[in-house]
């Protein structure tokens, strides 16, 4: 009973991370369209569009933070795994757990920092679009919440053991 509950939660996390990654891919497509559109507007219509520039930068930031959880879930973040790979299975497992613990600690501190920052600076707006910082920082917020959950599931060994050799991309 309990294990099926866990499975369902892990499944939901994988789905949420996958959805974020898909959203990131769409933002990348939008980014390409925006930049090409900016070129066209400038060269064909003599128009400079500061909001296009700003929206493109927002897409760039968002796509990074929205993809990070999926990479963690699959263990694809670039790491130097020489030492762990050289060790026998048991100490190696401990090092892997330590790495997940480090990820968890980083997530916790980052979210705390984001909470402090947005508490003060959440209402400020971006210059061209007047986008509030809450929106601007929403992708990192979502990304790090999912990243925390990803680290937790991997720490307790619930993640599907795929792509262990996928570190090099």
């Amino acid at each position: 009973m309990r294990s099926s509950m866990t499975e369902r939660l892990v499944g939901a996390l994988a789905m949420a991370s996958g959805a974020c990654r898909a959203l990131a891919a769409l933002l990348l497509a939008l980014l390409a369209v925006l930049v090409v559109g900016g070129v066209a507007a400038r060269n064909l219509a003599d128009l400079g569009l500061p909001w296009v520039d700003e929206l493109a930068r927002f897409c760039g930031i968002a796509l990074v933070y929205l993809t990070v959880p999926m990479l963690a879930l699959r263990g694809q973040h670039v790491a130097v795994d020489m030492l762990p790979k050289a060790l026998p299975p048991v100490p190696r497992l401990w090092l892997e757990k330590a790495a997940e613990l480090a990820m968890l600690a980083f997530c916790a501190l980052f979210l705390y920092a984001l909470h402090l920052f947005l508490g003060r600076a959440g209402k400020f707006e971006t210059p061209a679009l007047g986008m509030s910082n809450w929106l601007f920082y929403a992708p990192p917020l979502i990304g790090f919440v999912l990243l925390t959950l990803a680290a937790l599931t991997r720490l307790f060994g619930c993640a599907s053991a795929g792509a262990e050799d996928g570190e090099i991309r």
Binding site: V78, V80, L95, A98, A99, M103, F106, L109, F110
Partner: peptide, 12 residues
């Protein structure tokens, strides 16, 4: 050295 991802090693 213990294999923590580079980004996390830097950030943490």
């Amino acid at each position: 050295v213990i294999g923590v991802p580079v980004a996390v090693s830097l950030g943490l």
